[in-house]
Amino acid sequence: NKFNKEQQWATYEILNLPNLNEEQRKAFIDSLKDDPSQSANLLAEAKKLNDAQA
């Protein structure tokens, strides 16, 4: 299913963002699990935070 693929991709991407700390990473991944339909939005937020902390 589409959300499952998006969720897996977003999880992979978030795990590989270098500037997030473990707590932030875990929070994003927990949110992905809670609502896979928000995968794209959550990934965008994670990338923004990652860039802000660069």
Rank of each mutant, 00 (worst) to 15 (best):
1 N>R: 01
1 N>H: 13
2 K>A: 15
2 K>M: 15
3 F>W: 06
3 F>T: 05
4 N>F: 11
4 N>Q: 11
4 N>L: 09
4 N>E: 15
4 N>V: 06
5 K>Y: 07
5 K>R: 04
6 E>Y: 08
6 E>V: 05
6 E>N: 04
7 Q>V: 13
7 Q>F: 11
8 Q>I: 13
8 Q>L: 15
9 W>D: 14
9 W>L: 14
9 W>Y: 14
9 W>V: 13
10 A>Y: 11
12 Y>V: 10
12 Y>G: 12
12 Y>S: 12
13 E>D: 04
13 E>V: 14
13 E>N: 06
14 I>V: 05
14 I>H: 01
14 I>G: 01
14 I>F: 03
16 N>A: 14
16 N>I: 08
16 N>L: 13
17 L>G: 00
17 L>M: 15
17 L>A: 01
18 P>E: 09
19 N>Q: 04
19 N>M: 08
20 L>G: 00
21 N>D: 12
21 N>F: 10
21 N>V: 06
21 N>S: 15
21 N>K: 10
21 N>H: 12
22 E>K: 10
22 E>P: 12
22 E>R: 06
23 E>I: 08
23 E>P: 06
23 E>N: 11
23 E>K: 11
23 E>L: 09
24 Q>S: 02
24 Q>F: 01
24 Q>A: 02
24 Q>I: 03
25 R>F: 03
25 R>S: 04
26 K>P: 00
26 K>T: 11
26 K>F: 09
26 K>W: 10
26 K>S: 09
26 K>R: 05
26 K>A: 11
27 A>Y: 15
27 A>K: 12
27 A>E: 12
27 A>F: 14
28 F>P: 00
28 F>D: 00
28 F>I: 05
28 F>T: 01
28 F>K: 00
28 F>N: 00
29 I>A: 04
29 I>H: 03
29 I>Q: 04
30 D>Y: 07
30 D>M: 09
30 D>H: 10
30 D>R: 10
30 D>Q: 13
31 S>Y: 08
31 S>K: 14
31 S>N: 12
31 S>E: 09
31 S>T: 11
32 L>N: 01
32 L>E: 00
32 L>F: 03
32 L>K: 00
33 K>D: 07
33 K>L: 09
33 K>F: 15
34 D>K: 11
35 D>N: 13
36 P>H: 04
36 P>D: 03
36 P>Q: 02
36 P>A: 08
37 S>Q: 10
37 S>V: 05
37 S>A: 08
37 S>G: 10
39 S>R: 06
39 S>K: 04
39 S>L: 13
39 S>G: 08
39 S>Q: 05
39 S>T: 12
40 A>N: 10
40 A>Q: 12
40 A>F: 10
41 N>A: 11
41 N>W: 13
41 N>G: 10
42 L>N: 03
42 L>E: 02
42 L>K: 06
43 L>F: 06
43 L>W: 05
44 A>P: 01
44 A>W: 08
44 A>Q: 10
44 A>H: 09
45 E>D: 07
45 E>W: 07
45 E>L: 05
46 A>P: 00
46 A>V: 02
47 K>W: 11
47 K>F: 09
47 K>G: 03
48 K>Y: 10
48 K>E: 10
48 K>S: 08
49 L>T: 07
49 L>G: 01
50 N>W: 01
50 N>K: 00
50 N>E: 02
50 N>Y: 01
50 N>I: 01
50 N>P: 00
51 D>G: 08
51 D>K: 10
51 D>P: 01
52 A>E: 13
52 A>V: 14
53 Q>Y: 08
54 A>W: 09
54 A>T: 10
54 A>H: 12
54 A>I: 10
